[in-house]
């Protein structure tokens, strides 16, 4: 079935947003570990690292935001709704779109959660 100008959702598109979350998490961790792992000068401010985390966060939020925007738009275009238990291509598509919306929303919040320590922690203590 062709949905013109629309993505046909599958399991990979479903996990796109949480995958972005995972990379954001991993990169934030690596950036901080590389800066702080030789724990020699723990009172030195790590402004550069914090900015880097902020940058990664913006990129991740934009990517997840794109997934969220796309899935909401397509879910609405295909009629929205919450049940999606019909035996049709359309309902399967709507189910995947709505689940993508939910997962993208969770990932968006998750990225913000993970980025918050970089707002308040100034050094390697």
């Amino acid at each position: 079935m062709a949905f013109s100008r629309h993505t046909e959702d599958n399991l990979w598109t479903l996990i796109a947003a949480p995958t972005v979350w995972a990379f954001h998490f991993l990169l934030s961790y690596v950036v901080a570990a590389v800066e702080c792992a030789p724990n020699s000068d723990i009172f030195e401010p790590i402004g550069g690292t914090r900015l880097l985390v902020a940058g990664i966060t913006v990129i991740a939020l934009v990517a997840i935001g794109f997934v969220l925007w796309r899935s909401i738009r397509e879910w609405r275009y295909h009629g929205g709704g919450y049940r999606h238990n019909e035996d049709t291509d359309l309902d399967r598509e709507r189910f995947l779109e709505f689940s993508t919306v939910l997962l993208a929303a969770l990932s968006f919040v998750g990225v913000i959660f993970v980025a918050m320590p970089a707002l308040t922690i100034w050094d390697c203590r």
Partner: peptide
């Protein structure tokens, strides 16, 4: 370092 702990605590 507490910034690392913070990431994991948030998650």
């Amino acid at each position: 370092p507490s910034i690392s702990l913070g990431f994991f605590s948030a998650a």
